Amino acid sequence: MNNKNNPRIDDYSKSKPLVEVMQSINERFNSKLFEGRENGRLINHNLEYGLGAENILRGLFEEILPSKYGVGKGKIVNSEGILSSHQDVIIYDKLNYPTLFTDENKNLIVPLESVYAVIEVKTKTDSAVLRKAFEGLKTVSDLAQGGEVKSTNDLVDHKPPKLMIFSFQDDRAIKTIKENYCALSSEFPRDWSFSRYSEKSPGHERDNGYHYLVSGVYILGVGGVYAMLNGSVAIGVWKNNTFGMLLSGLLSTFNQIKLGDYHPESYVSWIGAGAREIHER
């Protein structure tokens, strides 16, 4: 028996065209996100609000993404045993790669090779909060050591993981957020971007040479600031379609990524070293 507040996709498709179906689904997702934001304001406790915001976003991704994608929180490790800082949302391949560690609070440690995307979730952003988010995502980027093309699309080079920021609120004008994003991208430079026109693409000739640590910043109910394939930065004023645009961008990109092979022997060396150290004590 269907809940009127949470109808099945079949209920939509029988009576509505596809555009209206997607609009209805997007409205349901937005209602959860906006409700979470309002509940957080009522609680008026930064830590609880922040954890609630993360849980809402992770819950939506778990509901929407195909079962092959794992959605969690925690840290990412490379084969040298170097860990990232704690990340709010990690989207990874849970079918072909192991989870190296899980604690009682469901914090994970997953291998870098398994990760499609990482999202820093903020209840409210300003220039200081965005800087902190960039700092956290840089610890993931540092694990990749230059990035490796893992794309099935000959015209676009994808170098996962994709690093993004999602904010439940930012009171600044979207143009100001873009200026902040560009300034931080210059302050946290790297010589590759997550997605770029490949040398085989006609678009490669328009490449402006700028690269970005963070692929985009998305503000609930407002829109996003994001890097384009030629290195320019665009503004999307999507308002209540912001989460839908973020989601559709992720799904279309994931379908073009072939993650690298997992080599357990690379991880056994440092896991085993840690085990021996504990044993020797």
Rank of each mutant, 00 (worst) to 15 (best):
L95D: 15
L95K: 15
L95N: 15
L95F: 15
N96H: 13
N96V: 11
N96E: 14
Y97L: 05
P98L: 14
P98D: 13
T99N: 06
T99R: 06
T99K: 11
T99Q: 07
F101K: 06
F101A: 01
T102M: 09
T102C: 07
T102G: 01
E104W: 13
E104H: 12
E104A: 14
N105D: 11
K106V: 15
N107T: 14
N107F: 12
N107Y: 10
L108G: 02
I109F: 00
I109G: 00
I109P: 00
I109L: 00
V110K: 00
V110C: 00
V110S: 00
E113H: 04
V115M: 07
V115C: 10
Y116R: 02
A117T: 15
I119T: 13
V121F: 10
V121R: 02
K122A: 09
K122D: 09
T123Y: 09
K124P: 09
D126C: 13
D126E: 14
S127A: 12
S127Y: 10
V129D: 02
V129F: 04
K132R: 10
K132I: 07
K132S: 12
A133I: 04
A133N: 06
F134M: 08
F134N: 01
F134Y: 15
E135R: 10
E135K: 06
G136W: 06
G136N: 13
G136Q: 08
L137W: 11
K138E: 08
K138S: 08
K138H: 08
T139M: 03
S141I: 00
S141D: 12
D142T: 07
D142F: 05
D142V: 01
L143C: 08
A144E: 11
A144V: 15
Q145I: 09
Q145R: 13
G147M: 11
E148W: 07
V149Y: 08
V149M: 09
V149C: 07
V149P: 03
N153S: 09
D154R: 09
D154S: 03
V156T: 15
V156Q: 03
D157Q: 05
H158L: 11
H158M: 09
K159F: 07
P160G: 02
P160I: 01
P161W: 01
P161R: 02
K162F: 04
K162S: 12
L163W: 06
L163A: 09
L163T: 10
I165M: 08
I165L: 10
S167R: 11
Q169S: 11
D170C: 15
D170F: 14
D170E: 15
D171C: 05
R172L: 12
A173H: 14
I174T: 03
K175T: 03
K175Q: 08
T176M: 06
K178I: 04
E179H: 05
E179P: 02
E179W: 01
E179Y: 04
E179V: 00
N180T: 13
Y181A: 04
C182F: 13
C182Y: 07
C182I: 13
L184D: 05
L184P: 06
L184H: 05
L184Q: 05
S186W: 04
E187P: 00
E187W: 01
E187A: 07
P189R: 05
R190M: 13
R190Q: 15
R190A: 05
R190I: 14
D191L: 08
D191C: 02
S193L: 02
S193M: 03
S193T: 05
F194C: 03
S195E: 02
Y197Q: 09
S198M: 12
